[in-house]
């Protein structure tokens, strides 16, 4: 993996940072594009169970807290010159894909929180939603196997 003379990169922090930012970014897209711009998703659906409300509340809160924590972790990695960009991207795709799949399978289907879109045949929308999640997840996993290199060695 590491070339001779190069320190093997420590990648755990970079992956974690990416996952947190990825979860937050997916949550942000969900809220901005589907709730606010397209108005496909509804603020509240009559069919929502109590468990669904709690799950949605926790996930919504977790996703935007995750993006704040993730961005500060990224700043910290950078000042330590310990960022491994390929691992941050891998984590980001895994986080975003995981969020998308959880949202599509557990929140939309299992808890019936709200649907992708209303007044249409749902199957193609659900498939597109979940396939997008799987593609993001697989791309992230593939990236996480690529050789990792730090952007620079620490100065000390």
């Amino acid at each position: 993996m590491a070339e001779p003379g190069e320190r093997p990169a420590r990648t755990g922090r970079s992956v974690l940072t990416g996952v947190l930012i990825g979860i937050g970014a997916a949550g942000f897209v969900d809220e901005t594009v589907f709730h606010q711009l397209l108005h496909w998703h509804h603020f509240y659906d009559r069919g929502t169970s109590a468990a669904g409300l709690v799950s949605d509340g926790l996930f919504h809160a977790f996703s935007w807290t995750a993006v704040v924590v993730g961005l500060f972790l990224l700043a910290d990695l950078h000042r330590r010159r310990a960022t491994v960009p390929v691992r941050v991207w891998a984590g980001g795709l895994i986080g975003a894909g995981g969020f998308q799949l959880y949202d599509g399978l557990v929140q939309h289907k299992l808890f019936g929180l709200h649907q992708v879109r209303y007044g249409v045949d749902l199957l193609p929308y659900d498939l597109a939603w979940d396939v997008a999640g799987v593609v993001l997840l697989l791309a992230g996993l593939a990236l996480s196997r690529r050789p990792a290199r730090q952007i620079a060695a620490p100065p000390w």
Partner: peptide
């Protein structure tokens, strides 16, 4: 924050 969200809904 999750609790606030649930209560608001």
């Amino acid at each position: 924050s999750a609790g606030h969200g649930v209560l608001a809904k």
